[in-house]
Design a binder for these strands. Structure first.
Lengths: 282, 282
DNA sequence: CGACACATTGAACTTTATCAAGCCAGGTGG
DNA sequence: CCACCTGGCTTGATAAAGTTCAATGTGTCG
């Protein structure tokens, strides 16, 4: 793991290697919920890194210094735990931030590998924190980025903790569909960038199980599978897979009688609101 | 048998009224990695809430306003997903923060229920962020708290994605042991505050599986189980369970390796560093 | 004391992993 | 151009790990 990785044009501001070496904040901020209310702020520029499929953006153990904002492309983050197990922790794509979990330990905790040619803005954390101190919107967006990441992990834990293989795969496809959709791509037709093995690792399954589940879903007509191309034919069917029980209409306890000791009520369903790429943060 | 009682010695100083209504930052900050370099800062006080076992600190859907710092006690955070599955997401105890994931959606996403009589400091997020803007150490600690939470979730995802039931339970016990140890309690004898069902939910297992695994570990001599009391007899055995393969990774084992050192696994891995109450952030 | 919630244990059953072929598309080199 | 590799995918047969169902035990609390 001690592989000295020379990072291509990291701090090169002007050196226009193959392409541009930096982006202005104003160019990518909107995709991450940053509101730029001060025009000067928008002019702050950050180095850009271009990563080709198969290359690493960061490696586990590298000293933490920057957050990476994916401007376009697709990555996988892979952690190798102490037992030597490889786990795909996340599949970040355009509009998502990478590396937040490295702040506390002081080093990145996972390898981040591009699955497709990608562009990221490398924002030194110290600088970001500094900007945040001057601009409330930036600070807010930064906190929210952390919080959102946390929420995502929680969903993942629920998925791994409770869902069957079929439900996990359905959930995975719906998530991809949703994310592609938000970016303006088709919600029903897309190409997977990762192997069955990687999907399995991400979902806590073996690649054979993923393959079989794809086949089964295809046989049921819910989706079409051709190699790495997925077609979603019946969105509702996929969603239904995750409602295993005939959920009876739940009784809604009047919001006031909160004397509930011990037992936990069915609790008000927290609507999954659109937290998309939108900027708003009341 | 001595039920390790987390004595509420909280109000050591003044106003030992039955229910003191506030704590000064200086009193609990050190436990969370906050460095108080400005004495005036230490005087800032926050409301305290005392929660009895079985009561809820927050409920899913409640509007997000504060982060709760557990001063003493033990909680579970439970999410009920859209399918109606209950999942125990975390088991926060003394020295940990609760509610960080609620910032982005604007409401708490899980029920947080006390498993034991507990005391928490309720720190309004807005106020915390404001303090952070004036004091770099506070801000840093806040970011780190987010980052650390993220790291914890990642470990959880690895656990759920790759480990067998036995390894999950072993890992769970080691984690508890470690956490109790950090707080000054015995690392080898402690009382579980949660049911088998809750443990199972947390580990992605059924309660029967947890029970069976406890029994098996007890039969092997690694632990002792008496109802809710756990005794760890063989720490190394538990640790060994998580090294399923004779994984001889490429890290060359130093030729003249120390054998004396009580069979300490080759875990020069990113050692889980003392992230306890320590403050350092080089 | 009796009820009840929690825990343990057994046996049957399901789901997923494992092992083992075989297949297919794309790339390489003869 | 084709024959042939190769890496990834599919599919089948078994096995293993957990779940489910069910019965029984046990401490706690009213």
């Amino acid at each position: 793991m001690a592989r000295t990785d020379l990072r291509p044009f990291f701090s090169s501001e002007h050196s226009a290697a193959a392409g541009r070496a930096s982006v202005r904040l104003a160019e990518f901020a909107p995709f991450f919920g940053f509101e730029i209310d001060d025009p000067r702020l928008g002019e702050v520029a950050f180095p850009v890194r271009r990563i080709k499929a198969g290359e690493s953006l960061v490696r586990a153990g590298d000293p933490f210094d920057a957050i990476y904002f994916v401007r376009c492309g697709f990555f996988k983050t892979v952690r190798v735990d102490e037992a030597g197990n490889e786990v795909v922790l996340a599949l970040p794509m355009t509009g998502e931030a990478i590396g937040l979990d490295g702040l506390d330990p002081g080093h990145y905790t996972a390898d981040v590998v591009a699955l497709d040619t990608s562009l990221v803005a490398a924002v030194p954390f110290a600088q970001l924190a500094h900007l945040g101190r001057e601009n409330a919107s930036i600070e807010r967006a930064l906190f929210r980025a952390f919080s959102r990441a946390l929420g995502r992990e929680h969903s993942m834990i629920c998925l791994l903790g409770t869902l069957s293989a079929e439900a996990r795969v359905a959930s995975f496809l719906l998530d991809l569909s949703d994310r592609f959709g938000r970016l303006g791509y088709s919600r029903t037709d897309f190409a997977l960038r990762m192997t069955r093995q990687e999907i399995g690792s991400y979902l806590g399954l073996k690649l054979e199980t993923v393959s079989r589940t794809f086949s089964a879903l295809a046989a049921s007509g819910a989706i079409g599978v051709d190699r790495k191309t997925i077609t979603i034919n019946d969105l509702a069917a996929l969603q239904a897979i995750m409602q295993p029980k005939g959920e009876e209409p739940e009784m809604r306890p009047a919001p006031g009688a909160v004397r509930a000791q011990g037992a936990h009520r069915p609790s008000p369903r927290l609507a999954r609101e659109a937290r998309g790429r939108a900027l708003a943060f009341a």
